[in-house]
Write a protein that binds this DNA or RNA. Structure first.
Length: 631
DNA sequence: ATAGGGTTAG
């Protein structure tokens, strides 16, 4: 029957498939019918349409097959469509491979600006400067003319690869009248990221046209640099000058910056904003709003509240959201896990199942990390394995990492190591690092040494675990080996990541490092610290001296008595009214000693203190911590 | 066939 149609009609039919709701099904039925009647290879226009159908619906390998077999003399447009299909399916590596391979083979048509845009974008995604430069050389050598869009994408490639000299050169080469708002925002992104806030602000001020992207980039940069007040100024300025309001992407970008630094100042403003402009609608009373955007913004808010220590607000928001997707559920799961709330995480997971939400691999990372962070390794790996495969999820390295961490921290090191040997991957640095920390915790020097050796093959420059190993040697009485490790690090010029704590008081973020004396209120802070230590030791007889010895002599004196979180805590106590809850943010894990001190302070000074460290939240109240001393 | 900021984990 199909044989009676003309080639023109069939190709039109195929092209129309791309725009239908189920393009693939219709297109494939047509494809199958062509094959059945032996019709299609002889008609170039039909086979070309078939290739474009597969490219457009995002099936790159099907498109490649059709391209190879049926597109006899590809045009630039065909070739570009093929590359773009790979890029849109998040396969930037394949995109580059096909481009360079065909190019070296002389089997591709001369690329144009659009082709190069796709190639530069792929190199940018991979931060592959070598490929980017190579592509640029091909442009020059073959005399390809680049329009402003292609130049912007090349600039973005240089920016993402930290090659700011080349990026600026490209920017300068674009005629001033040609420069688009995208040229400017690409430059702004790079300058903010690589040259810092001050230089970025200069670029921002030079921008004649500012849009959502520019405003939110600038505001996010202020947030990430601990200047939420400045971010608010930018946002209010935006509202006054521009009719361009924030869209859901700008909102997510701002909120993720807030999540990074753990400050809620801007979050509150954004929350009010999205409710006001009805970007976030909790109940479905109208259908004239953007469902996807609302879910995305809602999930983003849940995430940021959880990461800023406001888990109750996050939970309330989650419950109020009438429409959710898998990301919303996963965000809530990992938020609860971050706070060590195992039972709640478990409950939410079963609620997910009863609501017929199909959990994905990230849901399981959430659930498993709740177990590992709380030390509640109730079931063994076999049960989890079954649970996962029952829901169609294949266990990945991350899942093993959670279990290994949980077993190790619970002192079940033999089981942990057995699991590592049994898993179908070679352990990565996350897994080995977790085992080393557990060995440290339980003084298993010999096993720690073995793991360390394996880790050094993968990551010879790792500083963190050298320090851990050195501490382990020190506490097992082998001061000599400990010093050797430290000295080796020092000789190679590696330094320990310094611990930094932040506390937000009255919309300003105050930063403290260990032994820090740079804060304007340093005398008051240290006076408070002394008072704190005095009250603690007289009230409890608590020994405030270190339990693990720090081999670096100059650090030993000050470090433990003035760890950054204690300074932040002292500052918080003198800067707020009695009873005000305090939120502290720390870049590395909290140490046992400080943990003990903060527990006592929460009781003696009647304060709720929330500390976010690199691993999880600790909520201190009346002398107890929500982690129940397990982390 | 084409550029910039974006939610979940490790």
């Amino acid at each position: 029957m199909i044989g009676s149609y003309s080639g023109k009609l069939l190709s039109a039919l195929l092209r129309s498939c791309v725009r239908r709701p189920w393009p693939l099904i219709h297109g494939q039925i047509l494809h199958a019918n062509f094959l059945k009647v032996g019709f299609f290879p002889s008609h170039p226009s039909v086979s070309n349409a078939l290739f474009h159908m597969y490219a457009a619906v995002g099936l790159p390998s099907e498109a490649l097959l059709a391209f190879r077999h049926h597109v006899t003399s590809p045009t630039t447009l065909d070739f570009t469509a093929l590359l773009s299909a790979y890029l849109r399916s998040s396969l930037p590596y394949e995109t580059l491979r096909i481009f360079f391979f065909s190019h070296s083979n002389n089997s591709c048509p001369l690329p144009d600006g659009v082709t190069m845009t796709v190639v530069f974008t792929a190199a940018a995604k991979l931060t592959d400067l070598t490929s980017g430069i190579l592509a640029h050389l091909i442009v020059v050598k073959r005399g390809v003319v680049l329009g402003v869009v292609a130049r912007n994408s090349a600039m973005d490639m240089y920016v993402k690869c930290a090659a700011m000299v080349d990026a600026r050169k490209m920017f300068d080469e674009i005629e001033e009248s040609e420069r688009s708002v995208v040229s400017w925002s690409v430059l702004l992104w790079g300058v903010l990221k690589w040259d810092g806030l001050i230089c970025g602000k200069e670029v921002f001020d030079k921008m004649a046209m500012k849009n959502q992207v520019a405003w939110s980039l600038m505001a996010s940069a202020y947030i990430e640099n601990g200047l939420p007040k400045k971010a608010m100024e930018i946002l209010t300025e935006m509202a006054g000058v521009s009719d361009d309001n924030l869209n859901h992407i700008s909102v997510c970008s701002l909120l993720s910056a807030c999540a990074l630094v753990g400050d809620v100042t801007v979050v509150r403003w954004v929350h009010a904003y999205v409710v006001k402009v009805r970007m976030l609608v909790l109940n479905q009373e109208h259908d004239d709003w953007d469902n996807d955007a609302s879910i995305m913004v809602g999930s983003s808010l849940i995430d940021v509240y959880a990461k800023c220590g406001r888990i109750e607000i996050a939970r309330r928001l989650f419950e109020k959201m009438a429409v959710k997707n898998i990301v919303t559920w996963n965000t809530m799961l990992s938020g609860l896990a971050l706070h060590g709330l195992v039972n709640e995480t478990e409950r939410l997971f079963s609620q997910m199942i009863t609501n017929q939400i199909v959990p994905d691999d990230i849901s399981f990372v959430g659930l498993l990390s709740a177990y590992s962070r709380s030390g509640h390794m109730k079931s063994d790996w076999k049960c989890f394995h079954k649970l996962m495969t029952d829901h169609g999820v294949t266990p990945k390295m991350e899942h093993y990492a959670c279990i290994v961490d949980g077993l190790g921290r619970a002192g079940r090191l033999v089981e942990a190591e057995a699991l590592v040997k049994e898993m179908p991957f070679r352990p990565n640095e996350v897994i080995l690092g977790s085992l080393i920390s557990s060995c440290c915790l339980y003084g298993k020097v010999e096993m720690g040494r073995r793991m360390m050796e394996e880790l050094l093959h993968l990551d010879p420059h790792n500083t963190e675990y050298h320090i851990l190993m050195s501490n382990m040697y020190a506490s097992s009485g082998n001061q000599c080996k400990a010093n050797n490790l430290r000295q080796g690090l020092k000789n190679r010029g590696f330094r320990k990541v310094p611990g930094v704590s932040y506390i937000s008081i009255d919309r300003c973020i105050h930063r403290f490092s260990a032994g820090d004396k740079s804060h304007p209120q340093t005398p008051e802070v240290y006076a408070m610290l002394d008072e704190m230590i005095f009250r603690l030791s007289s009230a409890t007889g608590y020994p405030t001296s270190p339990t693990t010895r720090d081999a670096e002599e100059e650090e030993r004196e000050e470090a433990l008595f003035s760890h950054s979180e204690r300074l932040a805590l002292a500052f918080g106590l003198i800067s707020t009214k009695p009873g005000t809850p305090l939120h502290i943010f720390k870049n590395i894990r909290i140490c046992r000693n400080c943990h003990a001190v903060i527990k006592l302070v929460s009781d003696l000074y009647q304060r709720e203190i929330t500390v976010r460290d690199r691993n999880r939240f600790h909520c201190f109240k009346l002398g107890f911590c929500s982690c129940l001393d397990y982390w």
